[in-house]
Design a protein around this nucleic acid. Structure first.
Lengths: 251, 251
DNA sequence: CGCGGGATTGAGCCGAATCAATGCAGGTGG
DNA sequence: CCACCTGCATTGATTCGGCTCAATCCCGCG
């Protein structure tokens, strides 16, 4: 990669400061390829609640999440909204090869997105094989994650679902704050969804989610500082509660 | 396609007789590309119950399903097995870019697979961009299907789940037998899974699945000829019972 | 013909949904 | 500063769908 000189240092400067430089779809591009991608890149910010993609509408742009969290939602014909998944920093948003997005995307928190216009990006995908491969890998990872949630929804009870969800958030938050090999000792993390959204995501009701939170709290597993700020006090117990083996439990 | 002469008619003959010629990952290749892929292709047959990929083990080969149905399974650490999805003719099996398969695959019925050895196929993916794009599209479709099942598991009750499952099978079976635009009047179709597998797939128990089948039967919606042969008597009612679940498809 | 595994049916129970209050914080206007 | 409102979260009481446990049926097969 040091042999390519067609990309000036100047052109790459924005990427060098990017937090997700090596984990996004841009992760494995050569300097010249990265410069080409960077030429069509355009940072956009969204505030919590804003819609980024609308289900059924043509996709205007793709993007890599730099900061914040995105909710992917499916809108039922009866108006109900279901959360299909969450996107975290370094994840890719937008459905390639499909003018109509099969889901909508909404900023769960304030958001910083590195966007690419639809046409320019699809052209680059055709021109840069590595970009196509990166997209394939991202998609495969998303599929794996979806499979995991499928198992969770299939066979786990309310407590296990909530524990799994918190574990996921704690891990994610950890990864972001200490990119190294931290020993799972996160002080606190933010839950980027309302209780209603959590319930929807986990296939439960608000009431059940709330009850599970308080049970975890009185058991001393977590600390709920306010509705959106949590602290994991007993990571091991939480991990066990996610249900690797259903030899739970006390109460 | 008539302009390329590097691929002899002889080389392409096996593909010309292939039922899934235009819907597999090979679907949009040029004649010469197809010939190259064909050179590493090797038809393999499996009988029902045989394992095709083992979770956690290196992938030996990839393949396109020609006939039969594959179960994708996740093996939990406690030994439990969960069905993640089903693969139908024209679907692609095998996890590229990941030596260890994150799931196992098992023949649900007798199976005919057009296989490609791991290394040769990954080389071709690098050489033939269209192949990478086809894989990406397949994966995106699988992801969409997974999203659909996720919604189903989230918010649908037993009857809706069973109805959705039968609807999916009826549609699939229809597509295979009459590739044209049949008006959803399939005489009968086979359920390629045992009750236990269906229950697992739908996040229910065998008993519940069985009860729903009999209720649909006494209501005159379906006819259960034997444990695996079904007939849809009232497609409209069945459709309604699915609870507005528009995306059909598997996995 | 009897055996065995999958499928069906039945009775009772339990966990999560539902229905219904209450609590709590942030914002707004008097 | 307080009273009030509004939206979200928590807590409690009750109901109900699907699970569990257990018996029986069905059908292929030696």
């Amino acid at each position: 990669m040091s042999s390519e000189r067609s990309a000036s240092v100047f052109e790459l400067r924005p990427c060098q400061r990017c937090m997700v430089r090596h984990s996004g779809v841009c992760g494995h591009l050569s300097d010249s390829e990265l410069a080409e991608l960077n030429r069509i890149a355009h940072i956009r910010e969204f505030s919590a609640g804003e819609e980024i993609l609308s289900q059924g509408e043509p996709t205007q742009f793709f993007g890599t999440v730099q900061e914040g969290i995105i909710k992917l939602c499916a809108l039922e014909s009866d108006g109900a909204k279901h959360i299909l998944g969450l996107l975290f920093p370094s994840d890719f948003v937008g459905r390639i090869y499909n003018r109509e997005s099969p889901f909508s995307a909404e900023a769960a928190t304030d958001l910083k997105l590195c966007t690419f216009s639809h046409d320019a990006f699809e052209r680059l995908v055709r021109e840069i094989p590595a970009l196509g491969h990166a997209l394939l890998e991202k998609t495969l990872n998303e599929l794996d994650a979806c499979h995991d949630w499928r198992v969770l929804l299939n066979r786990k009870n309310a407590k296990q679902r909530v524990a799994s969800f918190l574990m996921m958030l704690a891990r994610r938050s950890e990864l972001m704050h200490c990119p190294r090999n931290a020993p799972l000792e996160s002080p606190h993390f933010e839950v980027p969804l309302s209780r209603a959204d959590i319930a929807d995501f986990l296939g439960l009701t608000v009431e059940t989610v709330s009850r599970q939170f308080t049970r975890l709290k009185v058991d001393g597993v977590i600390d709920v500082m306010n509705a959106r700020q949590f602290r994991v006090l007993d990571p091991q117990t939480l991990e066990d509660l996610t249900g690797r083996h259903f030899g739970d439990d006390e109460s």
